[in-house]
Amino acid sequence: MSKSVEVRLKVNGKDHVGQCESRTLMADFLRDHLNLTGTHVGCEHGVCGVCTILVDGEAVRSCIMLAAQAHGADVVTIEGLAQAGVYHPVQKAFHDHHALQCGFCTPGMLATAIDFLSTNASPTEPEVREALSAVLCRCTGYQNIVTAVMEAAAVMRGEIETGARADG
């Protein structure tokens, strides 16, 4: 039997305290303990990237991270990307460019793109393609996703204006 541990962390700007078994994966903790079901699980081996979340600002595969490892961390999931009812620039660009199909990989794709753009504000298209290769999408050829990330980078650099509301 696995030992129970207390996990204290900030998720999407809110403090949370939870108890879970020491072997509980972060994806399961988010989904089952915090009822944040936007984080999807695909391969359960850290290969496909659909479970990617941001932990202390960096992209992390939540299917291979233990919840206990997130103790004290600042976590952002798909549910926390929009702020004050306004989409994150990457979300807005995905919407504008129809950069999703079934939506299963989208939360991981967004987290990966946001992490990538935090370290490369002016990427080339090949660099975007390389960064996004960390998340597998079976529904699309990635072109609209790449276009969306390129536009989001321009918005985040202040070259293009945006302001779509997430609530309408």
Rank of each mutant, 00 (worst) to 15 (best):
S4T: 13
S4H: 14
V5E: 04
R8Q: 08
L9I: 08
N12R: 10
N12C: 11
H16K: 12
V17E: 09
R23I: 00
T24V: 10
A27F: 12
D28C: 02
F29P: 00
F29V: 02
L30N: 04
N35T: 12
L36Y: 12
T37G: 01
T37K: 14
G38A: 02
T39G: 00
G42A: 11
C48F: 02
C48R: 04
T52I: 08
I53W: 11
V55M: 13
V55K: 12
D56V: 07
G57V: 10
C63T: 00
M65F: 14
M65A: 08
A67S: 10
Q69M: 11
A70Y: 06
V75L: 10
V75K: 02
V76T: 11
I78Y: 06
E79A: 07
E79C: 07
A84W: 14
Y87I: 03
V90C: 03
A93E: 00
A93N: 00
F94M: 13
H95S: 14
H97W: 11
A99R: 12
L100M: 13
C102M: 13
G103F: 12
C105T: 05
T106D: 01
P107Q: 06
M109Q: 05
A111I: 10
T112S: 13
A113C: 07
N120W: 11
N120D: 15
A121R: 15
E125T: 04
P126M: 10
R129Q: 05
R129I: 09
L132C: 06
R138D: 01
C139I: 07
T140D: 07
T140M: 03
Q143V: 15
N144S: 09
V146T: 09
V146D: 02
